[in-house]
């Protein structure tokens, strides 16, 4: 219960950061927080087992999700580095002049 709420809060916070932040690295941090929120919801929304344990399937899904999110984050950061090196900027704003 508590963790479902936490998951929703993290999802909202992460979404907020992903849209409101302009620095690409900050956006990626926020996306990771949103992912964590989603993972929390996915595991804690599944009904508990009769013996009090946790369903292994959502856990497996979340493990897969974690690895995918690391992969995506790593490539996103590589792109952010390239953005900084090539165009000298750290945001995706179109109006920002390149220095």
């Amino acid at each position: 219960m508590m963790f479902i709420l936490l998951g929703a809060v993290l999802f909202a916070l992460g979404l907020y950061g992903a849209f409101a932040r302009r620095n690409v690295v900050l956006k990626l941090v926020a996306v990771n927080i949103a992912s964590s929120g989603v993972f929390l919801v996915v595991v804690s929304v599944a009904p508990p087992l009769p013996d009090g344990g946790t369903d292994p399937l959502p856990q497996a899904l979340v493990l897969t999700g974690i690895v995918i999110s690391v992969a995506v984050t790593a490539f996103g950061l590589a792109l952010a580095r390239r953005l900084g090196a090539d165009e000298g900027r750290a945001t995706l704003d179109d109006e920002e002049e390149t220095s």
């Binding site: 932040r21 302009r22 620095n23 690295v25 900050l26 990626l28 941090v29 990771n32 964590s36 974690i66 999110s69 690391v70 984050t73 790593a74 950061l77 590589a78 952010a80 580095r81 900084g84 090196a85 000298g88 900027r89 750290a90 945001t91 704003d93 920002e96």
Partner: peptide
């Protein structure tokens, strides 16, 4: 999640110039 992703973030911070590491 925390360990390796943190390292990834720090590693790319080291490559961004100073003014690129704060929100404009």
């Amino acid at each position: 999640g925390a360990g390796l992703t943190g390292v990834l973030f720090l590693e790319s911070l080291g490559h961004l110039r100073r003014n690129k590491t704060v929100e404009p």
